[in-house]
Simulated assay, not measured.
Amino acid sequence: MSSASASASATATLPSTAQLRAQHGVSTTVVRQAILVLQTQGWVQGVHGLGVFVADH
């Protein structure tokens, strides 16, 4: 995560899985695993149907 992303507000959303996959040239599985790690560490919060949001730190 870049320093700009780390300092984003709590309402900032991550790009879609498809956008992240295309941007980084990785599979959907890799993107989902990375998001899961970020959720586990408290960096992001997933809201079903709305997206993944940067957590308030």
Rank of each mutant, 00 (worst) to 15 (best):
S5I: 12
A6W: 06
S7T: 14
A8Q: 13
S9R: 14
A10I: 12
T11Y: 08
T11S: 15
T11K: 12
A12Q: 12
A12G: 10
L14E: 00
P15H: 02
P15I: 01
P15F: 01
S16G: 01
S16P: 00
S16Q: 00
T17K: 02
T17R: 02
T17A: 03
A18H: 00
A18Q: 02
Q19E: 06
L20R: 03
R21S: 10
R21C: 03
A22Q: 07
A22T: 11
A22R: 07
A22E: 08
A22I: 05
H24P: 01
G25N: 11
G25H: 09
V26S: 08
V26G: 10
S27Q: 10
T28K: 09
T28R: 07
T29P: 02
V30P: 02
V31R: 03
R32I: 08
I35P: 02
L36E: 05
L36W: 04
L36Y: 04
V37C: 05
V37N: 06
L38F: 10
L38E: 08
Q39S: 14
Q39A: 14
T40E: 12
Q41P: 06
Q41F: 12
Q41G: 14
G42F: 09
G42W: 07
W43I: 14
W43D: 12
W43P: 09
W43C: 13
Q45F: 03
Q45G: 05
Q45L: 11
G46V: 09
V47S: 10
H48A: 14
H48F: 06
H48N: 11
G49W: 04
G49K: 04
G51N: 09
V52L: 05
V52A: 05
V52Y: 08
V54E: 05
V54R: 14
D56P: 13
H57C: 15
